[in-house]
Design a protein around this nucleic acid. Structure first.
Lengths: 207, 207
DNA sequence: CGCGCGGTTGAAGAACCTCAATTCGGGTGG
DNA sequence: CCACCCGAATTGAGGTTCTTCAACCGCGCG
């Protein structure tokens, strides 16, 4: 792992709303996130953005760059970000060096592929209330694994616009769903901090 | 190509509703479809099936078997089918034999991955009428590439249940959507044959 | 002949959207 | 320091889409 760090070519600081990659851009650099959130999205034919996933601190930004020549989605910083930069070619060489590294990477990529199918199912079978609850829970889980959740509370820089783009509903409706979750005392949202007050309830609502 | 055929271990005939693979089943055989249709689906937590894709004559049934140990979805015959069978291990060996074969296979797999993202977008941004129209068009296109469309007409063995499972709507609503397409003279459905009467209109409706 | 699956139809309601107006809070220029 | 401004959140009213439940029809098949 420390060997990977040696490949780092630098740290890049970007302001919120910066577009890191556009769909179709050739990959040159690989990034991992030290600080901040980003959104990974594609555009529908009519130009409406659809967020596939949020990229959180600790996440690789463009893992697929190792297999793909060009980006298949657009990445945009939601907050100011600090990124660790690598050159794709360096990383590819590193990964090819041993059979073991390669296989582990493949497993991650394949896992992502299978996960995207599962996500599709969930997406397609749940109500908006369930989807919102699931989104919050999955973000909380991912952040918790990185030690970024304290007592059920975490930084939550998403605007309702992001949630609506990710879940396929209007901002107005996101508001109403979030409002009922708040009114029921399940979550609390102050400043940019989200508190999960009744985890058990939130899970119940999510299915 | 003829070399691949030499690897064929046999032909398997299965009745409709036969489950070819269940989610989690280890892969042993690889199939390609000579005749018939199948559905590839996963189950949501509540047990509702969600069809990812339909498998048509000429399609590989379980391409991912070359990279994956076990099936990540269930495959079920919609009609009676005739399958060409291969042993996964034979196929894997064949694909590894030359750099070129391997690379082409990888490209196909990666293409599938990217396509699944695109599909997700479409899925998430369109009305049920648009989704139905798109499904019909995409099936027609795939069948046409295999010479199975004559003058805008083709075998259509899907029940409304399949369409509703694929598109995330109720059978009742599938019926109503199909009914309006028929009433507008855009499509016609008799026996198990679908006629696209006004291709241009169908495309217009799909976006 | 009867049974059952699949398609069709109607009515009522839930979920979600659209449009539009209002509020709130943080940032900015004067 | 204050007035203003702008993006985001909130709220209301009214409409559309889709679901649910229920009944009925038609047809193939044992």
């Amino acid at each position: 792992m420390s060997e990977i760090l040696a490949l780092r070519t630098g740290v890049r600081v970007v302001a919120k709303k910066t577009v890191l990659f556009r769909e179709g851009d050739p990959f040159r650099d690989f990034y991992s996130v030290r600080e901040g959130w980003a959104a990974c999205y594609g555009l529908s034919e009519r130009g409406t953005p659809r967020i596939f996933d949020f990229i959180l601190p600790g996440d690789p930004v463009n893992l697929s760059s190792i297999r793909l020549e060009a980006s298949h989605s657009t990445m945009e910083a939601i907050t100011d970000m600090v990124l660790c930069a690598f050159r794709c070619s360096d990383l590819a060489r590193y990964m090819h060096e041993t059979e073991d590294r390669w296989r582990r990477l493949e497993n991650v990529l394949i896992g992502e592929f299978v996960a995207s199918k599962k996500k599709f199912i969930e997406w397609a079978t749940n109500s908006s209330m369930q989807r919102v609850a699931r989104l919050i829970l999955s973000l909380a889980k991912r952040l918790d694994e990185r030690g970024l959740v304290q007592n059920g509370s975490f930084q939550f820089p998403l605007r309702y616009r992001h949630i609506s783009d990710a879940l396929g509903m209007t901002q107005v409706h996101v508001n109403r769903v979030m409002a009922t979750l708040r009114n029921q005392g399940i979550i609390e949202l102050e400043k940019q901090i989200l508190h999960i007050r009744q985890h058990r309830e939130l899970v119940a609502v999510s299915k």
